[in-house]
Amino acid sequence: MLRVAVIGGSNGQLARSLSETADAGCMVSLLGRPQVDLAEPAGLPEMLSGLLRDLAPQIVVNAAAYTAVDRAESEPDAAFRINRDGAAAVAQACAALGLPLVHVSTDYVFDGSGDRPWREDDACAPTGIYGRSKLEGERAVQAALPAAVILRTAWVHSPFGGNFVKTMLRLAGERDRLRVVADQQGCPTYAPDLAAAILTLAQRRVAAPDDPALGGIFHLAGSGATSWFGLAGEVMTVSARLGGPHRPVDPITTADYPTPARRPANSVLDCSRIDAAYGIRLPDWHAGVARCVARLLDT
């Protein structure tokens, strides 16, 4: 049986998806607040080492993060404590115990320029505090544990937690029309699909911990790309087909919807490296949206 310790509470989209996705051949243990709080990194490596020693996992997944992109602009200390210092503490604990680590990062480490998908070796230049804190977290993890797997993902949605798909369905029940940004491109990622892929990756990594081809930075997101406008339209189409709330969606520009943090215009990730190394490729983003909306309407 594969034993996985997940840093992240039961309310987190990915942590909960990992717990629900695990089958009879995998045991997932969630370590979240207040037991493990990345916002309080002082002394965390030693405390976490003790917890992990007792749990005896074969691999650790850090799915915890400060993800409030706009609020991070006014709370930089909180973002860096969790996304950089907390991530470093997790990596240090894993290094002390000789445990492999999968650390989840973000597409926001890029500045969104250009029109081709971003590759792992492209230069990072985040435009906001959230992206900067996650990039520094990646670097802190690599410094503490060079063999760690760092997964950059994007536009995560699920039947739980706060996310874009849930927001669109809620607004469809409250407004006559929806206005959604159409000039930002990315790869919608269904959290249960991401979770299943991470567990497959974890099995491979545990079996070959010293294989250099299986470590380092990888991109892992839903296949295909769209805009927030395109994603909202798909949510409405699926909801209408299933008898749920739906409204017309009007495209707007980023300038029409100013936010404290500047989002990358091009957030599309090239996921070919993880396909080559692990044989992992996530389903088309449309399929994830259909499953997500169906489950939300069934609750």
Rank of each mutant, 00 (worst) to 15 (best):
P57E: 02
C26D: 00
A93H: 06
G32T: 08
C124N: 01
A72P: 04
S49N: 01
A65F: 06
D115M: 14
D115I: 13
G32N: 09
A123C: 10
Q58R: 15
V69M: 08
L38E: 03
D77S: 08
G43A: 07
T106P: 13
P76L: 12
R116C: 12
A42M: 05
L44R: 00
T21V: 15
S113T: 15
N62E: 08
P34C: 02
S49M: 09
S105I: 07
A24H: 13
A123L: 15
A56E: 14
V36Y: 06
L38F: 11
I129M: 09
A89H: 03
L52K: 03
D122P: 11
C94K: 10
V61Q: 01
L48S: 07
Y108R: 11
N62F: 13
P34V: 04
L52H: 02
T106I: 12
L38N: 04
L51I: 15
I82H: 03
T67P: 01
I129W: 04
R53N: 12
I82A: 13
V69W: 09
G50R: 14
G32V: 05
Q35R: 15
S74I: 12
D85V: 01
L52G: 04
E120G: 07
L48I: 11
G128L: 05
S29W: 02
L101W: 07
S74M: 10
R84V: 00
D107K: 11
V90M: 09
A64I: 07
R53A: 15
N62Y: 11
E73W: 10
L44A: 02
P57W: 03
A89K: 04
A89P: 09
G114W: 15
L101F: 08
D122Y: 12
A39S: 15
T106W: 08
V28H: 01
D23V: 01
G50P: 05
A96I: 01
F110S: 07
V36D: 01
H103M: 12
V90S: 07
P76A: 12
A87M: 10
R53Y: 09
L38C: 10
I82E: 07
P45G: 03
T67E: 04
R53L: 14
Q58K: 13
G25P: 08
A89N: 05
G114N: 14
P34W: 01
A63R: 02
V28K: 00
E120D: 12
P76D: 05
D23L: 00
L31H: 12
A56F: 00
L31E: 02
D23P: 00
G50A: 14
S49H: 00
G86C: 07
G114P: 10
A96C: 02
N62V: 13
R71Y: 10
A78H: 10
D107I: 06
P100E: 05
D115C: 14
P34F: 00
D107R: 13
I82Y: 03
R53T: 15
Q92F: 00
D115K: 14
C26Q: 14
A39H: 08
T106K: 12
P34H: 03
Q92V: 08
L55E: 13
L48K: 05
A123G: 08
